[in-house]
Amino acid sequence: MSTVTDAPTRTRGRRPDDDRPPRRIGLSQRLGTWDVKLSPYLYISPFFVLFAITGLFPLLYTAYVSMHDWDQIMGQGEFVGLEHFRFVLGHSDFWVSLRNTISIFLLSSVPQVLVAITLAALLDSNLRARTFWRMGVLLPYVVAPVAVSLIFSNLFADRFGLVNAALGLIGVEPIRWHSDPLASHVAIATMVNFRWTGYNALIFLAAMQAIPRDLYESAWIDGAGRVRQFFSITVPMLRPTIIFVAITSTIGGLQIFDEPRLFDQYGRGGAGSQWKTLTIYLYELGWTQSNFGRASAVAWLLFLVIVAFGLVNLAVTRRIADTR
């Protein structure tokens, strides 16, 4: 707020000898006021204009498409109202995909945030070669998802995979990574965690470094140990960051596509839909079956699911951070 009131004064103050007629001063003053009031909106407008074109319009247009028969190539057909929603909601594939999506999301996001916050706390302490470790955790993020999938498909191959070979050494039965739904979710969640944990850890680390150090010093004098400091100072002070990370990883987690698509050779989520997620189901409807109407209906349902999860998430993370 202070800039708003200061700016005109500063403009006037900078030209003490200026003796232009009062009328023109009045105009420049008015322009100055507009400048101050409008400019901020103008500066952020590119984002919103872009968002309106690439975000809002497709969102509304998808709703329009979802109420029509719509072939990918021939385009618009008849208006069918909510028929596509009825079909999708009545089809087992949708519910199986929803189950898989939520399961993979929980298996990835929850451990991810917990590990990331712990990792950040470790990186925040006095380490030798600090920058090296900090860059190290970001390394998996730089690797392309396709490369990650290539590596992990060798790790998690059912018969000749490294993980099963290692398990065999300690006498554990091989896990059927591509046949058993839960095992496939764990494998996919591992890929996601590999990629995103370090990234989130750095976000937490940045926030941690903004916490005033004297808080820790006072706590130290009061006799609080490291663990107590972590839970009584670090976590509450990180509240906005935790909410941010939780929301972004919810959105990302529910839209997960690359990893399950690249998990086997066909990218359809398994012969029995073991790891078919909502986005893969959407892709299958739209691009394999050429039915954009149904695909758009799934897109909207996915949007609603994400909004619902986002709200639940907001409430939960608020509660967690508030209890201190």
């Binding site: 498909s153 191959a157 059912d158 000749f160 591509h178 086997d264 050779q265 066909y266």
Partner: peptide, 8 residues
């Protein structure tokens, strides 16, 4: 074996 899979 699933044709085209890594195992295959």
């Amino acid at each position: 074996l699933g044709q085209w899979s890594t195992d295959w």
